[in-house]
Write a protein that binds this DNA or RNA. Structure first.
Length: 562
RNA sequence: CGGGAAGUGGCUCAACUUGGUAGAGCACUACAUUUGGGAUGUAGGGGUUGCAGGUUCAAAUCCUGUCUUCCCGACCA
């Protein structure tokens, strides 16, 4: 592509609309433009990168034997009713209706349609297994779109679905996809981790996430310093060691105006880990008090699962007033509300907790001192906790979820009647897996991971152009001719090349080429009279002088090596 | 939805506190001098100050409402 007479533009300053690094760089480099919160246009340079990511994904999907299809985005609501997902997906679905008031949704995820597609094909066990996928827009009414392309409301997702006769088959299909994903993220040069995760609204038994490691990450990844344990904090198991000690006598002590764990702990000089804190919550309009160790946080995801509910919120004053709980001084002893305790509490001794009386806490409380309705692992892991696998020490990293794998099982096939007949003419539901990956989010993650003060540093595999040629003096005919010749020659070799022939000062062109992250730059300047041009890598401040005749070979070799 | 911040030429901001009819930098146009890391000078073009209402002789500025965007919390690729 030649930049003169092209749409290409860049901005010299950050826009105030974007806070994330990748968002700023994408907008400044003219790759995307915001239309509304979480809605963006992809402009030529950005689309070029997007297409390269898509191409890699497609190549690996095809290599894994998956076949591409395309599902609609506009879908009659009834398709989502069968599996109860209008309810499950709730407000995150965009609803609309046609002129006859028939309800439609914009597809937020496509398990149902893929299951229905599979029904057309599957009758016998001989029709299995197979995997189909698509690369299409998804629409989700996010509560809070943010961070540029990282959390948007309309996005391109590659979603694949595997269909097998049994769990064993699913394992094979699943692992094939996992391998394909590994190839994809390796080729994209992403620094990622695979972590265990929650199955969420998709349902099923196992979920693993591909997480790009970045500081802007929305997820906390729990990793172990001595084994390869890795898990999203939302499902990471808390393992605590019981410290045996002799039980002392329960005592109610005065703690005037000391409400928070922080205050109580320092007032009584008891470590936070020897305090128990109460979380007064609303579970289906019933007050439930959760008790966890003072230095931990309640994990709502785990709590919901334990109680088999979909939502837990903070209780309001009215709900709290129905019990004898005193906010700031709530403890499990003689509390008349439903009580759920973290199982860790049951192995603690002589701890401090609220006295259910304004200005009082108990010390030396023990599990035998109170009753509870349920217990389980309901709090978040802390850094330094014990690894549930090897006993090593856990530490955290932040990540952005850029892909995931689900073992769906038979949730959708059962509800939608996707069954096959086995060798004995017996009918069974098909066992499904689903595999998603966000194209735009991958783009954003790569930029989050690869940049410097001059802009984006794209890996060769997805750079909009592999090589750019900058003409220093566009009025110098010789320079222009040489640059054009190099451009044509590189192009004829199938190399993705960009010619900056704009009538701009050299500095402007250098800055722009750096900003958009082109890996290799050829500068055509004064030395053309000696048959010399310069070649420079985006990541290197040094350049190499090269005979014009050798440029093609040099570039070809470079691309082969990297 | 709760909490915080902000909407002024294409972009970044000033003027708002203390009402008097909008200004700078970048970008753009023309000319000149420049030309290897976002040039300089001169002269220009471009804004119903998010929208609607109100107060006032007079509103970017004060008041009310409303919309939008960003940031912090519950969702997810």
């Amino acid at each position: 592509m030649k930049l003169k007479n092209s749409y290409f533009y860049t901005l010299r300053e950050d826009v105030k609309d974007e806070e994330s690094l990748s968002g700023k760089l994408l907008v400044r480099s003219g790759m995307i433009k915001k239309v509304g919160a979480g809605i963006y246009m992809y402009l030529p340079m950005g689309l070029k990168v997007l297409d390269k990511i898509k191409k890699i994904v497609k190549e690996e999907m095809d290599a894994a034997g998956a076949e591409e299809v395309l599902m609609p985005s506009l879908i009659p609501s009834e398709y989502y009713e069968t599996c109860g997902r209008i309810e499950a997906l709730g407000k995150s679905m965009f609803h609309l209706s046609d002129r006859f008031d028939k309800p439609f949704v914009l597809g937020p995820t496509h398990e149902e349609l893929f299951t229905i597609a599979a029904k057309s094909k599957v009758n016998s066990y001989k029709d299995l297994p197979f995997t189909i996928y698509q690369m299409a827009d998804k629409f989700r009414d996010e509560p809070r779109p943010r961070y540029g392309l990282i959390r948007v409301r309309e996005f391109i997702m590659k979603d694949a679905y595997s269909f097998d006769r049994d769990e064993k088959g699913l394992d094979i299909s699943y692992n094939k996809m996992k391998e394909a994903y590994n190839h994809i993220y390796d080729r994209l040069k992403i620094n990622y981790k695979i972590v265990k995760a929650d199955t969420g609204v998709m349902g099923g038994s196992l979920s693993e996430e591909y997480q790009a490691i970045t500081n802007i990450g929305e997820d906390v990844l729990v990793l172990c310093d001595s084994c390869d344990y890795s898990s999203n904090i939302e499902v990471s198991e808390v393992v605590s060691k019981e410290i045996k000690e002799e039980e002392k006598k329960l005592e109610l002590v005065e703690t005037p105006n000391k409400e928070s764990i922080e205050e109580v702990s320092s007032y009584l000089n008891i470590p936070k880990s020897k305090c128990v804190k109460a979380m007064l919550m609303n579970v289906n309009d019933e007050l439930v008090t959760f008790f966890i160790r003072g230095d931990r946080e309640l994990n709502l995801n785990k709590a919901c699962k334990l109680l088999k509910v979909s939502d837990i919120t903070f209780a309001d004053d009215e709900l709290i007033s129905k019990s004898n709980a005193v906010p700031g001084f709530t403890g499990p002893i003689n509390l008349n509300s439903k009580i759920v305790v973290d199982r860790e509490i049951l192995s603690m001794h002589n701890f401090c907790c609220g006295g259910n009386k304004e200005g009082y806490h108990y010390i030396n409380a023990n599990p035998k001192d109170f009753k509870y309705d349920a217990f389980g692992d309901i709090s978040n892991v802390l850094e330094g906790d014990i690894c549930p696998v090897c006993g090593g020490k856990l530490y955290f990293k932040k990540g952005i979820e850029i892909g995931n794998l689900f073992k769906l099982g038979t949730k959708y096939s059962t509800k939608l009647g996707l069954t096959y007949l086995d060798e004995n003419n017996k009918s069974f539901p098909v066992v499904m897996g689903c595999y998603g990956l966000g194209i735009g989010r991958i783009l954003a993650s790569i930029i989050e991971q690869n940049n410097d003060e001059n802009g984006i540093i794209f890996p060769l595999s997805i750079a909009p152009y592999q090589v750019c040629i900058v003409v220093i003096d566009t009025k110098n005919e010789e320079q222009v001719n040489i640059a054009n010749k190099l451009y044509e020659d590189l192009k004829s070799k199938g190399i993705d090349v960009l010619l900056d022939d704009r009538e701009e000062r050299p500095g402007v062109k250098f800055k722009d080429m750096d900003l958009i992250g082109i890996p290799l730059r050829i500068t055509v300047g004064k030395k053309v009279t000696d048959n010399i041009v310069e070649v420079k890598e985006r990541t290197n401040s040094e350049f190499t002088e090269i005979k014009i005749d050798n440029v093609i070979n040099f570039v070809s070799d470079y691309l082969k090596k990297h």
